[in-house]
Amino acid sequence: MMEALSTFWVIHSNLILSLGTNALLALSIWLTLSCGMLAMANAAFMGIGAYTSAILTMQFGWPFPAVILAGMLAPMLAALIIGLPTLRLSGVYLAMATLAFGEVVRIVIINTELLTGGIGGIAGIPTSTEWWHMLLAVVCALFVLWRMRRSKVGRAFEAIREDETAAGLMGINVGANKMLAFILGAALAGLAGTLNAHLTFMIDPKEFGFDRGVEILTMAIFGGIGSLVGPVLGSAIFTLLPTVLSPLADFRLMVNGVVLVLIVLFLPNGIWDPARFKQWFGRKQGART
């Protein structure tokens, strides 16, 4: 029995651990989405976290806890700097500005070969991430976000998402709250990047490009952004899907795109939508009486 379990772990541990990485990524974009911002820089923040941590581990020999901290702080700083001019943009303009930032990050990584290994990336990163590191990270992230949602911060995000002008006139500092969501999202993406880099042995700039950004968005929208369950569920399904549909591997990006379109058209609140569940449940109750 134990043997079967350990065999299962050897074969599937990478998949199980990438469940954690993707959950953190989906939660990172959920933060900005819950504040009404379509910011597409999460893949870049993940990359900044991954590269910062890999370089600190390999070239400077920092201990793992310090590396994790730095892997979160570096993208937070980047978010602060690019957030100041871009967060006043709304809707698709913010998406474009943050996508452009992502490209800049990718090109900087490719062109600083001495530090980042350029297009070939960095190989031989020690695999320090244990399964419980990942679990702890996801649980901590969920706890912090859950507490936030039940406080004035969560209400402020929600108010800003619904009507920015009205939120400001309720005494909410709209700019500061948007910045908070953006920076915390960057921290989560950086954490995902750091843990993932110390799991997969190597990183390269391709992983943190446009495709990854769209995938992160798709996971969160697919799951639904009305609650914390949605992004976690969405990321789990999107992690497991390629394994189940491995014959379709070549069409993975296409499948992602089709899923995003279908969800937006038919389930705009994602698959985890408490309001819809209540509606269904209510209808059943009504039919019974």
Binding site: K152, R155, A156, E158, A159, E162, D163, A166, A167, M170, G171, I172
Partner: peptide, 16 residues
């Protein structure tokens, strides 16, 4: 705020 309950709408006003 249309998607919030009445009481949440009012509590948002107490933010500060």
């Amino acid at each position: 705020f249309k998607e919030m309950s009445l009481i949440e709408n009012v509590i948002v006003g107490m933010h500060a």
